[in-house]
Structures are given as structure tokens and as C-alpha cells.
Amino acid sequence: MVDPHDRSDRFELIAACEAATLARFANDVLEDDPPLSVRQEPRPQLVMQQVREPVQRQPFNLGEVLVTPAEVELDGARGFAMLPGKAERGALSGAIVDAAVAGGHEETPTIVAGLEKVADRRRERRQTEWAESKHTAVEFESMEGQQ
């Protein structure tokens, strides 16, 4: 079960969340003008994806993935987020959201509910995609002896 109060789970949910939703949460958090410092400006960066090939089981570099990380300190609580792609606004909003939940901001229940919805949608999408794929499962039959 994914728990938005858990820092690692929250990271994944923020990464999967729409940038506009994160911006809305962040705006709500910043409405009372809490002390905020940006520890890491949101800038697109690269993560090299390493894969272990399955035969010799040696790792190799498949290619780089574009991500945008950001880190903030909000009212004494640190927050870190990383969004896929070039997403400066979303990453900064995500870091603020992360810090807000870590620091127990009053918006936390709303944010947690929103992130739980993200988890639900992600799970539903995966299940739908899997079910659609399984709907195309086929059994090939050999035709030895048939003319």
C-alpha cells in the first residue's frame, strides 16, 4: 500500500502527479507566505539509466533520461522532488509539496488525499493496460501432420 506520509512513497507519487495539480497544492501552501528557500533550483538534468542484461548479467548504460529535480526548505522542513522531462514549475511545486507534508503543514490532509488519488489512478491505469494486453494473449498451435 502506497503511503503519501512515507518520504519515498511520496517522492514517487509527486513524480507521477500532474504539474498543474502540484502547482495548485504549492500555491495553497504558500498562501500564508511561510519562509521558503530554494536549495536547488529546478533545472533539467540527466539520469543515466543502467540495465543489467539478462544473460551475462553485466550492467550497461541504456541511455539518459531527462528529469527535473528541485529542493527547498519550507518553514524548517526540507523537500525534494524530481519530475520526468523538462518540468521546472512542476519540480519546484513538488519540492514545496514534499516539504509541506514533511513539516506537517495544515494543507497536508488535502495534499495526501490528492496524492492518494494519483496512486489510485496509477494503479487503475496499470491494471487496465495489463488487462488490455492479456486480452490479446494467444496460443499458437503447431500444425505438424496437417495438410
Partner: peptide, 23 residues
């Protein structure tokens, strides 16, 4: 474009068996 960007890090090594296969 990528040549203008910093490398954040390498990913942890993923096993192909972890793939969510659609085909």
C-alpha cells in the same frame, strides 16, 4: 540539447525482468 545539461546521477541498475510488458 543533452550536451548542455548536467548529469544528476546514474540510475540504480534495473533488471529487465522488472519490465511492465504490454507485449
Amino acid at each position: 540539447y543533452r550536451s548542455t545539461l548536467e548529469r544528476f546521477d546514474e540510475s540504480t541498475t534495473v533488471e529487465p525482468s522488472e519490465m511492465i510488458a504490454s507485449r
